[in-house]
């Protein structure tokens, strides 16, 4: 389902927003009320970031703003103007998957895949702040995100796998 403004409310976009997304400067028009998740998915066209509960609970829309994970359904695109955004598409560097992505593949860290982008973005951040987290620290770190398939077990294992297999010259946004 796409983000569509009902026709009776449709109006011309009325502000210009510029942000760095995965290292590239992007300028687009949107309304002041546009949520960042819709800006990224429907205006910029990066659909890796998922749109879930709309109530700041599920965390599938997590991306980074200025180096920190944020639930992008709870921030306006305008608030990210001039900031650095990193989405799940920005995990891969020069054709190399990030260890967190490899971890999810190795450890079967997803079934339906809906929560995966948010889980990976938070997982990457957990490891950037604490390269050797305990299981408890990982579980606490992803506690603001919901997975209805895995019971979290394999997600925790995937993040642990990534901790054990750091990339050389890891690139951080």
């Amino acid at each position: 389902m796409r983000f569509v403004v009902p026709s009776n409310q449709a109006k011309e976009p009325d502000m210009q927003v510029t942000m760095t997304i995965n290292g590239e400067s992007v300028t687009k028009e949107c309304e002041p009320r546009t949520l960042l998740v819709h800006f990224i998915r429907d205006i910029v066209g990066l659909r890796g970031t998922h749109w879930g509960c709309d109530t700041s609970n599920c965390g599938t829309c997590v991306l980074w703003v200025d180096g920190e994970p944020v639930k992008s359904c709870t921030i306006l695109a305008a608030m990210a103007d001039g900031r650095e955004v990193r989405t799940v598409e920005g995990l891969e560097q020069n054709g190399q998957l990030d260890p967190i992505q490899e971890g999810f593949r190795e450890c079967h860290g997803l079934q339906c895949g809906f929560c995966t982008p948010g889980m990976m973005m938070t997982g990457r951040w957990i490891l950037d702040n604490n390269p050797n987290p305990s299981e408890e620290e990982i579980r606490e770190g992803i506690s603001g995100q919901l997975c209805r398939c895995t019971g979290y077990h394999n997600i925790v294992k995937s993040i642990q796998w990534a901790a054990e297999h750091p990339a050389e010259n890891e690139v951080k946004a």
Partner: peptide, 13 residues
């Protein structure tokens, strides 16, 4: 879907 009502303005203090 929940999107805020139209906002006339957004400014940075």
């Amino acid at each position: 879907m929940q999107t805020p009502a139209p906002l006339a303005d957004y400014v940075r203090a």
